[in-house]
Amino acid sequence: MALIEAEGLEKRYPGTDFTAVAGIGFRVERGEAFGFLGPNGAGKSSTMRMLACVSQPSGGSLRILGDDPVVHGRALRARLGVVPQDDALDLQLTVRENLIVYGLYFGLSLKHMRAKSAELLEFAQLADKAGERVEHLSGGMRRRLTIARSLVNDPEILLLDEPTTGLDPQARHILWDRLFRLKSAGVTLILTTHYMDEAEQLCDRLVIMDKGLIADEGTPRELIDRHVTREVVELRFPPGEQEQAAEKLGGDVEVLPDRLLCYADDGDAALARVTEAGLRPLTALVRRATLEDVFLRLTGRSLTD
């Protein structure tokens, strides 16, 4: 049995005729790390909130741990961990108190939570901040605290909405490391991101979401193989010369506002052809194809605009 099964899942918010999630289907198996990759407004958070059993689907079917979240929301939420997009930590309370209070919400005892919070703070590398008010924590520390908080009930499924957005590279790597550990411990991870590298690093499988729909689904490798070539040559030309250059090059070329992308299995050979064609790009870079390219191919738009 899949841990999560969605079919034709939809979400429209009351008072709007806009469809935030327009009929998506996916399955998540136990122990997987499953990702939703998509730009702003794709419907990632809307989907996550339905999975967290705090938002009623407007259509389609959703089963979480075999149950209907609308009917069994309370029992299901007891088995989920949620890291919302905005941390929603309590700034008035200390780091430790944030964990204790959240544990009490789950019906755990104060005694249990005293021990559990120490363990979680150790895990989140926040033990030395236990008595400090959350107000005084950096963004990266707050994010780790939010993850620690989501673990108070030893959840089977952890829902992470943009776990590393807004963090510096070092803070991201610490966080990724913690998520790897959770995954090795058998926790099923479901996360959203707009970072390609994050999806490639963390996700066993992912769906690419755009405008409330799933554009494609697979492992990072499968998606790259299916939609792009192994390598990509990025070329920059002076303004106005891009179109001409693209025509001259022919082949599999994507024109972006600021650069050209040539898809090729052998990037160096492709670059040689550029030179042979008499083109003189301002800069040229051969790199491996990424999910970013997949997204571009699928939607015709760049993810980070």
Partner: peptide, 14 residues
């Protein structure tokens, strides 16, 4: 601003 309730309803609390 404080989002106290949103945090609480993510748990079993109704």
């Amino acid at each position: 601003r404080e989002r106290v309730y949103q945090t609480a309803v993510a748990t079993p609390l109704s």
